[in-house]
Write a protein that binds this DNA or RNA. Structure first.
Length: 845
RNA sequence: GCGAAAGUGGCGGAAUUGGCAGACGCACCAGACUUAGGAUCUGGCGGGGAAACCCGUGGGGGUUCAAGUCCCCCCUUUCGCACCA
């Protein structure tokens, strides 16, 4: 590469002088090759390091074979942070891996006749190349690939530990079935009745034997823990709180007339029980079934209700359907009043929440009111406002800031008090108790698919369900399997897989053929990074103790519930197994915005997908990454505009030319303290303001768009001073130090260019391990500023004053200003507001 | 329906604490150089007006010397939740 001559070009002839062109492709491939040759560059020091640790993590991708812009944005943020923290002297763990199990591999196998493993590994290789082309600072020695036995064996190991503790269990239940995936989905994976992967596919209900993980056992702790996660976005915490859905109330048993059964209902408003005028049961409630068994007409009408519920669920409008119900002809007895209340089946009562049955209090619940009005069921008032007006509040009246009326011995109590006392009464009499319910359900992890972790269980005719012993792990996923689109796991058709030996009796046993939900893989992968090669345990406990919790996790908000709640659950289980000490996996969570184009999320169907490869080929990785950070603050949606990338690329070219132009000067500069000239003072001031700004952005708001804008401002000022620098008006040592700081600040955003320029200015120690520049407040300080002068709040003039000018000086200078004087002429000054360093405002009449 | 976030030039966005609205970039306009280029450099660029000035941060009101920023009402968009008893 030809460097320019050492004769200092003046600004006048700069235009004519041939300059070195910024060639990002050449620079980037050269540096990527150098980095590839020194893998230790991005390796973390061991857990015994004395340095403070920093674990920065981006969500691992599914190896689809193609990085998209959302990934680029995610990794640009994480990479900038990792590099910055290295430069701040931290021991940084910055790993990457592959969420490599899952359905697309099977679909691809069907389409291209390629085995899922081969397809997946090919994609991983391709995406690895893309990541390297972006110059990302991952420690590939800790790479985790979840579809490899050395990883998924630990899924199996954890599953066995959970089974031993009763946290993994099998039950038959109604499950969500996606006809497209041909498998069961967890509740979390059903979005408004549709499959989370197939937005067009309605989820059906099926009855199946399934493996569950007892997430409900940790419901309370998962909820409480959210309060402590104050470095998580409030939005995410709210979503998780809603999802967990804790509700405090009471269960009350209503005896059924003419039967020995008691129907239990869950209510948060036991204080309104004197107003209960019917019981409403879910259509599939066992008691309704029992009634229907003896009444064909009822059975028919109840079935219609069930259908309505299913349709509503499938169409995603559960709240919108009209309330329907059927009177069963049976009565129950209100244990508080001994009144007979009719028992109904209603389509608005859900089987899987609470007890699947409610007491209907139409006077004080809007839904019950609608229902009772429609069917002519009695509506009673049993509470009223504390300070009643002339007329009591119209029904339905659901406030809890109220007192009881017509409620026997509880009349006159406040709702809160009544809830407590009536619950205690029910408990004492043995027909009820305080109850907390959660919306969160146990996690159904069975999937009737091939490409996942085999569930390590056996079924023996003699011994029943038998876990695979640890020493037989991993249960390997067979390699050559015919994938079909029919239901059921393809593994079930492989006798060599299914047929096993019972470890207890030595007799024949059948192997479980379901595989695990892939969310199992991502629930603990970040622990594995700390000791990815460990083949005797899932991870090294000491390494985890050092690195955890994750200091910064970065990813899309779409994982706010699923992945992040499962991960929290898994962490708590591992803690209770004695493997780790932290209660939470992630100390700080950052959710980045989406990448959109022309106002819509990038997608194939919309035809607005921008390929990272093309961007890199055309503008370079540095420009693509920097644009991803420059175009919007990272938490907001980003509108991808190719012209903007071109602009960033032009900026980098300008930096490149500027630094190269003065590289020789910087290389030969002596380190002796430089003489301050006006030009130097000005440039140093801008430099230190820029360092301060960027340092504060990293430590605070992460508005890298303004960090980059600040670097641009600095470069604008430097290039404007090009002639002054060339003519020696700035001491060489000062030029050298400015160039160094500039290049260092580019490090997190444009690592290839920074590395290249660092060498060009004669440094051979590498940017990454060099200390981040420090700002000097004294140098950053302006000594003269322009202060606006307002008259009645309108800008009339600007005056130049020293930064620390006193109020008196400010006012005097303002009054001395020509424009101000003419504006003040013939006016009476009523008041003068002087805010030192900010403004002066004359209030006049 | 409930909850949250957002709404600023032609566009992406800036204004961190109530203090010059529009930093930085894109697009555009004018000019320079010219080996004519999707390169580089210089200047301009919210609207109106010749100018002085006036208007301007979704709309309306308010507080204040001063409001994009605080308060009240409304509109729009996005996201989350939605018969949860």
């Amino acid at each position: 590469m030809d460097t320019h001559t050492s004769s200092s070009p003046s600004a006048a002839n700069a235009k004519a002088r041939p300059e070195v062109r910024y060639d990002p492709a050449e620079i980037e491939t050269r540096w990527q090759a150098r980095w590839a040759a020194q893998p230790e560059l991005y390796a973390a020091e061991p857990a015994t390091s004395r340095k403070p640790k920093y674990y920065v993590l981006e969500m691992l991708p599914y190896p689809s074979g193609q990085l998209h812009m959302g990934h680029v944005r995610n990794y640009a943020i994480g990479d900038a942070l990792a590099r910055y923290m290295w430069m701040q002297g931290y021991n940084v763990l910055h790993p990457m891996g592959w969420d490599a199990f899952g359905l697309p591999a099977e679909n691809a196998a069907l389409k291209n006749n390629t085995p899922p493993r081969e397809w997946t590994q090919k994609n991983i290789a391709a995406m690895r190349v893309q990541m390297d082309r972006l110059g990302l600072s991952y420690d590939w020695a800790t790479e985790v690939t979840t579809c490899l036995p050395d990883y998924y064996r630990w899924n199996q190991w954890f599953f066995l530990r959970m089974y031993e503790r009763g946290l993994a269990y099998r039950k038959k239940s109604k499950v969500n079935w996606c006809p497209e995936c041909q498998t069961v989905l967890a509740n979390e994976q059903v979005i408004n009745g549709y499959c989370w992967r197939h937005e067009e596919t309605l989820v059906e209900q099926r009855e199946l034997e399934q493996w569950f993980l007892r997430t409900t056992q940790y419901a309370q702790e998962l909820l409480d823990g959210l309060d402590k996660l104050d470095n998580w976005p409030e939005r995410v915490r709210t979503m998780q709180r809603n999802w967990i859905g804790r509700s405090e109330g009471a269960t009350v048993g209503f005896a059924i007339e003419g039967r020995s059964d008691v129907v239990k209902v869950f209510t948060t408003r036991i204080d309104t029980i004197f107003g209960a005028t019917s019981l409403q049961l879910a259509p599939e409630h066992p008691l309704i079934r029992a009634f229907a068994d003896q009444d064909a007409e009822l059975a028919k009408r109840v079935a219609a209700l069930t259908d309505e519920q299913n349709h509503a669920r499938e169409s995603g409008d559960v709240g919108g359907i009209e309330k329907h119900g059927v009177f069963t002809g049976h009565y129950a007895v209100n244990p508080f009043t001994q009144e007979r209340v009719p028992v109904w089946a209603a389509n608005y009562v859900l089987l899987d929440y609470g007890m699947g049955a409610i007491m209907s209090v139409p006077g004080h619940d809007e839904r019950d009111y609608d229902f009772a009005s429609k069917y002519g069921i009695a509506i009673k008032r049993v509470i009223r406002e504390k300070e009643p007006g002339e007329a009591p509040a119209p029904l339905p009246f659901a406030s809890e800031d109220a007192v009881l009326v017509d409620s026997g011995e509880w009349t006159g109590l406040s709702c809160a008090e009544a809830q407590q006392k009536m619950t205690a009464f029910a408990k004492a009499k043995g027909f009820g108790e305080a109850t907390v319910t959660f919306r969160l359900k146990d996690w159904g992890v069975s999937r009737q698919r091939y490409w996942g972790t085999p569930i390590p269980m056996l079924y023996c005719a003699k011994d029943g369900i038998v876990p695979v012993p640890d020493d037989q792990l991993p249960v390997l996923l067979p390699e050559h399997v015919e994938i079909t689109q029919e239901g059921g796991s393809p593994l079930a058709k492989l006798p060599e897989f299914v047929n096993a030996t019972c470890p207890k009796c030595g007799g024949p046993a059948r192997r479980e053929t379901d595989t695990m939900d892939t969310f199992v893989d991502s629930s603990w992968y970040f622990y594995r990074y700390t000791s990815a090669k460990d083949d005797t345990s899932p991870f090294d406990t000491n390494a985890v103790a050092y690195w955890f919790p994750i200091d910064q996790y970065i990813g899309g908000v779409e994982h706010a519930i699923l992945h992040l709640i499962y991960s929290r659950f898994w962490t708590k289980v591992m803690r209770d197994l004695g493997l780790i000490r932290n209660d939470e996996p992630v100390a700080r969570l950052f959710t980045q915005g989406m990448v959109i184009k022309n106002g819509a999320k990038m997608s194939k169907s919309k035809g607005n997908v921008v390929s990272p490869d093309e961007m890199i080929a055309q503008y370079g990785a540095d420009a693509a990454r920097m644009y991803a950070l420059f175009a919007a603050p990272p938490d907001r949606d980003l509108d991808w505009q190719e012209d903007g990338v071109a602009g960033v690329s032009r900026f980098l070219a300008r930096v490149y030319r500027f630094v190269v132009r003065h590289a020789e000067l910087a290389r030969s500069a002596s380190r002796a303290s430089a003489e301050a000239s006006p030009a130097a003072t000005m440039l140093l001031r801008k430099l230190h303001q820029t360092i301060r700004k960027i340092t504060q952005d990293f430590g605070g708001r992460w508005h890298f768009n303004t960090s980059i804008a600040a670097i641009m401002e600095l470069v604008n000022e430097l290039t404007a001073a090009d002639a002054a620098i060339a003519e020696g008006e700035v001491a060489p040592a000062t030029v050298a130090s400015i160039l160094e700081s500039l290049v260092l600040m580019l490090g997190p955003f444009a690592p290839h260019l920074a590395a290249e320029l660092w060498e060009q200015i004669g440094r051979c120690d590498g940017v990454l391990r060099h200390a981040w520049p420090k700002f000097d407040e004294a140098l950053a300080r302006e000594d003269e500023i322009e202060v606006p002068v307002q008259i009645n709040g309108k800008l009339r003039s600007l005056i130049k004053v020293s930064v620390d000018a006193s109020r008196e000086t400010l006012e005097a200078s303002a009054r001395a200003d020509e424009k101000v004087q003419s504006a003040l002429a013939a006016k009476t000054v009523v008041k003068v507001i002087v805010v030192p360093g900010k403004l002066i405002n004359f209030v006049v009449r």
